[in-house]
């Protein structure tokens, strides 16, 4: 009985790894499309989101089947519930990548100056998300606390970039289109970090049964 259950759980975890990879790729491509003003690549991000959504549905289906056929209890039950929440987080991250890709398309051939700190923010957000998925798969609770603590740095970076962009808008009378686009992009990146933090919360629940809020 345990072997069947373990096989099914491994199958689900394998899908989580795949979904994590796809979502990280969607962030990378969306940001690359922004830097290179590549509308084709932006279109690819939107296209690939369909696959992420399909994987979300697939994992949900596997969890329902697991519940119906294996009746998971205790840590197995908490693992399954956490997976269901994590796929929702990952699916939302995919949506934020799409939002960024849409901004890239809307900006078209506008000349956009990359604000200081954006690359650093992107790197840190990506690291948080990647690490939170890894921590979940490794069931490393301590790692979860460390990753979640980085969310404050992201908030701080976003605040700084946001302030600089508004200053540019006022003082230099730059085009408002790209500025609004950039403000939205940093907002979406910050939200992705929030979802990484959620994944850390799910992991702590899975390991301890305690609900924490960062």
């Amino acid at each position: 009985m345990r072997e069947i259950l373990d096989d099914r759980v491994r199958e689900i975890d394998g899908r989580i790894i795949r979904m994590g990879e796809m979502v990280l790729e969607s962030i990378d491509q969306a940001m690359q499309a922004f830097r290179e003003q590549d509308a084709v690549l932006a279109g690819k991000v939107l296209e690939n989101d369909r696959l992420i959504n399909e994987l979300d549905k697939e994992i949900e289906h596997l969890c329902v089947t697991l519940a119906a056929t294996q009746s998971p209890l205790a840590s197995d039950l908490r693992h399954m519930v956490s997976v269901l929440q994590i796929v929702t987080d990952l699916e939302r991250v995919g949506d934020y990548s799409c939002n960024i890709a849409e901004i890239v398309r809307d900006l078209g051939s506008y000349r956009v100056k990359e604000p200081a700190g954006l690359r650093e923010m992107e790197k840190k957000v990506r690291y948080m998300l990647d690490s939170s998925i890894k921590a979940f798969l490794l069931e490393n609770e301590q790692f979860a606390y460390e990753i979640a603590a980085k969310d404050d740095v992201i908030d701080e970076l976003r605040y700084r970039i946001h302030r600089d962009l508004l200053r540019d808008l006022k003082e230099r009378e730059e085009d408002e289109g790209p500025i609004v686009g950039l403000i939205l992009i940093i907002r979406h990146l910050e939200r992705i970090a929030d979802h990484a933090t959620n994944i850390c919360e799910r992991l702590i629940f899975m390991k301890t049964g305690n609900t924490v809020k960062f």
Binding site: M1, R2, L5, P72, L73, A74, S75, D76, L77, R78, T208, G209
Partner: peptide, 17 residues
């Protein structure tokens, strides 16, 4: 007991270990 048992032996029993 069934969502978050305190004792590892309970956990092992109810999860079929």
């Amino acid at each position: 007991i069934f969502s978050n048992p305190r004792d590892q032996r309970t956990e092992d029993y109810i999860t079929g270990r």
